[in-house]
Design a protein around this nucleic acid. Structure first.
Length: 561
RNA sequence: GGCCUGUUAGUCAAGCGGCUAAGACGUCGCCCUCUCACGGCGAAGACAGGAGUUCGAUUCUCCUACGGGUCACCA
């Protein structure tokens, strides 16, 4: 076969050579150990938790090594592209603190723009580049065309391939048949090609696999170590009939030209690693280092772990936003599952920015983990407890504007009050941890606001007249200028005067001698003022509520007895 | 089904030939305490199973079981 002629026939419009392209993409001028990583999603607008997870790895490795982290849009599947998706993706990631140095960015006009010297960063715009390399492969006898007719192509596009693959029955016969078909495809003549071309028939380009599926190639994965995978023996498609490559070929060409040093991707790609290695070898490219990350899983109906799929709760970052998780919290959680020593580091360095942590590939796990919302909640509480009242205020406000407008306007109406509320038990060595999500803020503070005040608890087990008597005495003696000790001394006095023990130790020694304790008297006041049996420090609560509201509520409670 | 890959408590996870097998979340108990939250102390709870290598296996090898992944003109 005259490959030179074949290449000319197939790619008559391509005049450049790989060498011409290489000149336009010189090696990056970076320090020795600088890593160049990328995030390369298909633009569906959907940011998956797993995507964020990988993105954090790429961002950390690049930035802590003085390298480059860029965004490449993999829009080679025209069926999947959704308008505005790239914008959504970039803003969502930025929300979590993941920012790109290069590649797709949002321009001043809100449209997608591109930054950097190694573009285009959108695969659909790289057609001419791919074709140069494709032609070269044909010329060297390493790739060949397979023609179809327009009708066949249409029929092919009409079937739901994903469903078909999923429901396929894998038998030895099938394998044999696939092999035969592959061999048959390799048999064609120049004359046939010319006829097809004349006829305007579409074709795909396939790589000529040189591997033997029975033999193994050694591969290195930075997370998984040394791997032995079967050699690639499949003539995979490297150019679809629309002239655009599927992932595999685009990956090889792009990551080579863009100087990616570390390819970070999900473990679902592990199986195609031999193909990629073969592609790099055919193309004469130096292979990047590979890191196949473990998947984040969820539990299916049978109690088995399953790759967290799109429809699962917690798969989309929108879920976390809606649920009220602050981005810092989700990121903190992800970091703890990404690097097994992160949590320990955080315990020792509660106040350092996460970027001070030395992210290590060695500390990454290679088995998939279940998303654990209880752990997330705990981490979130810790993160929020370290924030200032002002940060809590703006976080809660921002979330509420979107999901709880009434609460948002209450927060806006009296910022000082809100700050006072959020300051309770904050800032010390042992800060309160009352909420882990913005959505939990309102239930916790609602009693501070008359418009949301809805008593939840009642006092049980005490005589109404005792309660009334204690409350009346408290109301009569309440002085907003008292300090905390004076305030509590008064409660003790009231307790004593009404047959309740003012001292807890004394009370515990002989409970039957009293109607109750100072704790009970406190609870009368607490329930009257907050509508709850549990609340943060009552003294402070009253200060924030003000004398008038405090006394009104006590009065109203007495009348309801 | 072939191939790849994984398996330490309910979850995450240290461990890398010799340990009473860390730690975190969750659960339970106690303490602190005017309630709650915080904090402190403690408890229960794990090396999937079987062979082999070895003086000695959670750790190395093999087999089995069970997960997960992949086998598209999707990424």
């Amino acid at each position: 076969m005259d490959f030179e002629k074949l290449a000319e026939l197939l790619f008559a419009d391509v005049h450049e050579t790989p060498a011409d392209i290489e000149k336009k993409y010189p090696p990056r001028d970076l320090p020795q150990d600088a890593k160049v990583t990328r995030f390369a999603p298909s633009p569906t607008g959907f940011v998956h938790l797993g995507g964020l997870y990988q993105t954090i790895v790429g961002e950390r490795l690049a930035h802590q090594s003085g390298g480059v982290f860029y965004l490449r849009i993999e829009d080679t599947d025209d069926k999947r592209e959704i308008k505005g998706a790239a914008q959504k993706l970039i803003t969502t990631l930025a929300h979590y603190g993941v920012n790109f140095d290069e590649g797709a960015v949002i321009g001043d006009d809100g449209e997608i723009a591109y930054k950097g010297e190694y573009g285009p960063y959108k695969q659909s715009e790289r057609g001419p580049i791919y074709r140069v390399y494709a032609k070269d492969l044909v010329r060297r006898g390493l790739a060949y065309p397979v023609f179809t007719t327009r009708d066949e192509l249409e029929a092919l596009n009409a079937v739901d391939k994903k469903a078909e693959v999923k429901s396929r029955e894998w038998t030895e016969d099938l394998a044999e048949q696939q092999k035969e078909e592959m061999l048959a495809r390799r048999n064609f003549t120049i004359e046939e090609v010319e006829a097809h071309l004349k006829n305007g028939d579409p074709f795909v380009l396939r790589i000529l696999a040189s591997g033997d599926g029975e033999r193994k190639v050694k591969c290195t994965d930075l997370i998984r170590g040394e791997l032995e995978l079967p050699e690639n023996d499949r003539d995979e498609i490297i150019l679809k009939s629309n002239g655009i490559p599927p992932y595999h070929f685009a990956h090889a060409v792009d990551d080579h030209l863009m100087g990616t040093t570390h390819v970070i991707r999900g473990e679902e790609w592990l199986a195609s690693l031999p193909l990629h290695l073969q592609l790099f070898s055919y193309l004469g490219f130096k292979t990047p280092k590979y890191m196949h990350t473990a998947q984040v899983m969820s539990l299916d109906a049978n109690g088995n772990k399953k790759k967290l799929s799109k429809r699962d709760m917690g798969a989309s970052m929108d879920d976390y936003t809606r649920l009220g998780y602050a981005p810092e919290c989700v990121r903190e959680y992800l970091l703890t599952i990404l690097n097994s020593n992160y949590e320990e580091w955080r315990a020792k360095n509660p106040d350092l920015p996460y970027t001070d942590f030395q992210f290590s590939i060695k500390k990454m796990s290679n088995s998939g983990c279940l998303i654990d919302f209880e752990k997330l909640e705990d981490i979130s509480k810790n993160v929020l407890s370290r924030m200032t009242a002002g940060q809590i205020y703006s976080g809660a406000l921002e979330w509420s504007r979107e999901y709880d407008k009434d609460f948002a306007s209450a927060l806006e109406k009296d910022k000082e009050k809100a700050l006072a509320i959020f300051s309770i038990g904050r800032g010390g060595k042992k800060p309160r941890k009352d909420f882990g999500r913005w959505s939990e803020v309102r239930p916790f503070v609602s009693f501070f606001y008359d418009e949301f005040f809805a008593p939840e608890d009642r006092i049980e087990g005490f005589a109404a007249e005792d309660i009334a008597s204690c409350l009346s005495a408290f109301a009569a003696g309440y002085d907003e200028n008292d300090d905390q000790n004076a305030w509590f001394d008064k409660i003790k006095q009231i307790a004593a005067q009404n047959g309740f023990c003012p001292d807890m130790k004394q009370y515990k020694a002989d409970p039957s001698a009293y109607k109750g304790s100072v704790a009970d008297v406190s609870s009368f006041v607490r329930v009257a003022v907050t509508g709850r049996l549990n609340s943060p420090d009552l003294f402070t609560v009253m200060n924030i509520l003000g004398k008038q509201t405090t006394l009104e509520r006590i009065d109203s409670y007495i009348r309801s007895l």
